[in-house]
């Protein structure tokens, strides 16, 4: 199994719901709490597993705004794992989820340095590295209703821009989407083979238009319409159009 997410940049409106949902679930989750520093002060910040950034592609008036949510890509070649000296970071063999065992981490930051995607954040208060768990504490929890055994970010996304599934299964929704919508990896050249894929904004073909008519002055058009209504009426004898 190769579990991961597909994120549809064509429908993501950049609402941050997934990021806050993630924060909410995980602060009491397996790697919680997700500490917040200076929450009511000058420099509010904290630990997040999922962040949304907003970009502009091209220039006015051809500009397009793109909202890009990013969390751990659960890379196939996750150097964040290989660099980890303590064995705290690991990639689960059965499903490819990359996790941090908090009890083993020494907070050296090396894994964060190794991650191209900014997916790992040190909890300075707790001294350990934290990251997206792909909601491992939901997806396998049989005490949750079946339809809720998914990552919360996926569950909450109001534009259904997030999909969760098994990339090893060619018929899964994620595999199908990637195939049909030219799903791609961010920064592939770094060579981590991220599992999470992004669907590019769609190019819609130009919409058809009705054929243009001659037009004419308002008097001539109204005259024409008056004639038409009279004709229609006469044609039908009583005028049902």
């Amino acid at each position: 199994m190769k579990l991961g997410l597909v994120i549809d940049l064509d429908t993501c409106v950049g609402c941050h719901a997934c990021a806050v949902a993630c924060k909410q679930w995980n602060t009491s989750g397996t790697t919680g709490p997700l500490t917040d520093y200076d929450p009511y002060g000058e420099q509010p910040s904290g630990v997040w597993f999922n962040r949304i950034r907003h970009y502009e592609v091209d220039e006015y008036p051809n500009n397009k705004t793109v909202n890009a949510p990013m969390s751990c890509m659960h890379c196939d070649d996750a150097a964040c794992v290989t660099v980890c000296p303590t064995g705290a970071s690991y990639k689960r063999e059965e499903d490819g989820i990359v996790l941090v065992d908090q009890s083993k981490c020494m907070g050296c930051n090396l894994c964060a340095w190794a991650c191209p995607y900014g997916a790992r954040e040190l909890d300075e208060d707790q001294g350990v590295m934290k990251k997206c768990t792909l909601c491992v504490d939901r997806i396998y929890d049989e005490n949750l209703p079946k339809e809720e055994r998914k990552p919360v970010c996926v569950m909450t996304c109001p534009t259904s821009a997030r999909f969760f599934g098994d990339f090893d299964d060619p018929n899964s929704q994620v595999s199908t989407l990637v195939r049909e919508r030219s799903g791609y990896s961010m920064m592939p050249e770094v060579g981590y083979n991220p599992v999470n894929k992004y669907l590019p904004p769609r190019q819609r073909p130009p919409a058809p238009t009705v054929e243009k008519k001659e037009g004419g002055s308002s008097a001539s058009l109204i005259g024409k319409w008056m004639k038409r209504q009279k004709d229609a009426f006469n044609d039908l004898g009583k005028g049902a159009r």
Binding site: T30, P33, D36, P39, D125
Partner: peptide
């Protein structure tokens, strides 16, 4: 509060 570590149970 100056730091928040909200959680409802021991992780």
């Amino acid at each position: 509060a100056e730091t928040l570590t909200y959680h409802t149970h021991t992780p």
